[in-house]
Amino acid sequence: MAQSKLWTALPDWVIYPVGLIPAVDLLWRGVENRLGADPMKVLEHGLGEWALRFLILGLAITPLMRFARINLVKYRRAVGLTAFLYVVLHLAVYLVLDQQFDWLAIGKDIVKRPYITIGMAAFVMLIPLAITSNSLSIRKLGAAGWRKLHKLVYPAALFGAVHYLLLVKAWPPEPIIYLAIIAGLLAIRLVKPARRRARAA
């Protein structure tokens, strides 16, 4: 497969400082009270949206390789971990600033509010993926087992987008677009490579 030198010239750790720019920007503007009338919601929703964006980036890497011959696989771990970091920050804002450690209300939310239930489920599914995002885990689980485990990112990303769609009033475009992109990136994986299909036939 042709590899573009340009795409792989940078070390993978570059993803972390670059990926964290939006988080630092949001937190900084929050501390300086420059997030508008309702800074908590801007921070909470902003972090959640960035989590979705990084999940989308991570999901785009395989299709980019297969259909556009752009190989970004070396960045995928960093992209995935950055997505997880945004999920954790998003959840932290919900627990600390939004619900203010009102565990009773939080418990009720998780049980009674489908969008919270689904969001929490997505978070739980991403935990083992974050823990096993290292070379040692790949060796221990075996490549096949590790790949199988990491397919959990598919339902997690879908749940993340549904979580967004379920909390808005009416049908505004943004959550629908996120859901459509994620659904598209998952659907495209069902397209079998021509060669392999021929061999199977």
């Binding site: 309702d38 908590m40 209300a105 009720k108 939310d109 509010r113 489908p114 969008y115 379920l166 909390l167």
Partner: peptide, 8 residues
């Protein structure tokens, strides 16, 4: 879809 018991 959400509680009305409290407000911000």
């Amino acid at each position: 879809r959400w509680s009305q018991a409290t407000e911000r």
